[in-house]
Amino acid sequence: MRDPVRVTAALLAGCALALAGCTADPPEPPDPAPTEPDDGRTAAEEPVRDYLDAMRVKDVEQGRAQLCPATQEIFDASATGPGGDFAERFTVPRTQVVDTRPVTVGFEVTATVTVAVADATTDVELVFTVTPTGEDGWCIHDETSSSPAADSTEQPADESGGPPADESASVSAD
């Protein structure tokens, strides 16, 4: 027969150990999975977002401020012209950055811009090349349209026979 004192002591010791596990501080949760390091994408998108906002409200100076200095002269000559991003003949009701990818000189930031002339609207894809300024900032070095005019059936045409709205002047410092 077992010694009742020993059995009781063993049971009490087991209960004490079990209770100690329940009252101890819970283990620290594991650190969240590491996120992808910011390689500059977010910062490179900022001047593009600011430029797109400037297009929407037709703020030429704000748009110009997002460009690299070598690009500003070209911008000044074409921004408000018939095919320019700030032309009065069309509005820009919506814009959206849709892709950012690294390139040799910085990043290419692709945006979809909805352009409206009278009752016609079309989506235009603009590709901005954004380069570092050397001051922990970024500026737009180049802008091109990757939306061929012939692909859209709702293409707003310029009444003067000029280019459609998505043929915005390419701004480049090349």
Score class of each variant (00 low, 15 high):
A16L: 15
V171T: 12
V92G: 05
P4K: 07
Q66K: 14
D53S: 14
T133H: 10
R94D: 13
V127W: 02
D99W: 11
E36L: 09
V7A: 14
G63T: 04
S172E: 12
K58M: 08
A165H: 00
A120C: 01
T153L: 02
F75W: 11
P26W: 09
E61A: 15
V171G: 14
F107S: 04
C139P: 10
F75K: 03
F86H: 10
P163Y: 00
P148T: 07
A24P: 11
S168Y: 02
D142H: 15
L52Q: 04
L17E: 03
I140V: 09
D85K: 01
D151T: 13
Q72F: 07
A120E: 00
E154M: 01
R101E: 05
E143I: 08
P164A: 02
Q96R: 15
S146W: 15
G81Y: 09
R6G: 07
E143L: 08
G81V: 06
E108H: 07
L67I: 12
G84C: 12
D39Q: 15
V115L: 12
V117T: 03
Q62R: 15
K58R: 05
D3T: 14
L67F: 13
T112Q: 06
A79N: 02
F128H: 13
V103L: 10
T8M: 13
R41K: 14
Q62E: 11
A169F: 09
M55R: 08
V60T: 07
A33I: 12
A111V: 11
A77N: 14
A9I: 10
D174V: 13
A9F: 03
E143Y: 04
P69K: 06
P69T: 06
P37C: 10
L19V: 05
G14V: 11
D39F: 15
P37N: 11
S147W: 05
P102L: 10
S170M: 03
M1H: 15
E45A: 08
